[in-house]
Design a protein around this nucleic acid. Structure first.
Length: 118
DNA sequence: AGATTGACTAACC
DNA sequence: AGGTTAGCCAATC
């Protein structure tokens, strides 16, 4: 049971909102998210998602590690939920290079900022 | 208020 | 190529 004794902080809400913007079939990394919203520490982002009070509302499964691994899901770094995360990403058209690894290509990674040059 | 942990990342060996 | 160490930011104890 995830602790939700308090309402999410502004920082966490920022993370949830950013994740919510990720379109289907694309993913983002904790660091990329952190850089976009505030700081650059993926830990803060991951920590926020770990509490994720908006489970199905926020497509937290679209957030993966910078290495291309899935990272965690439902507050667990391993388990049946991780399998679900991979299944969701695969179902959305994400390119997998391994059962637990996805291809972090420009087509797979979602960019928050619109392309500056085009 | 201080110390520890956490869905991370990059560097080093 | 794989395991360990150090760095970061915010939340929780």
């Amino acid at each position: 049971m995830i602790k939700m004794t308090r309402k999410p902080s502004a920082f966490e809400l920022r993370v949830y909102q950013a994740v919510c913007l990720i379109p289907c079939g694309k993913v983002t990394t904790y660091s990329a998210l952190g850089r976009e919203i505030c700081c650059g520490s993926a830990r803060a982002v991951g920590s926020a998602l770990a509490k994720n009070p908006f489970a199905p509302e926020v497509p937290c499964h679209r957030v993966v590690c910078a290495d291309g691994r899935l990272g965690g899901f439902h507050g667990e770094t391993s388990g049946p939920w991780l399998d679900k995360k991979s299944a969701l990403l695969h179902g959305e058209g994400v390119c997998f290079i391994a059962p637990d690894r996805i291809s972090l290509n420009a087509s797979t990674l979602h960019q928050f900022q619109a392309p500056p040059n085009q």
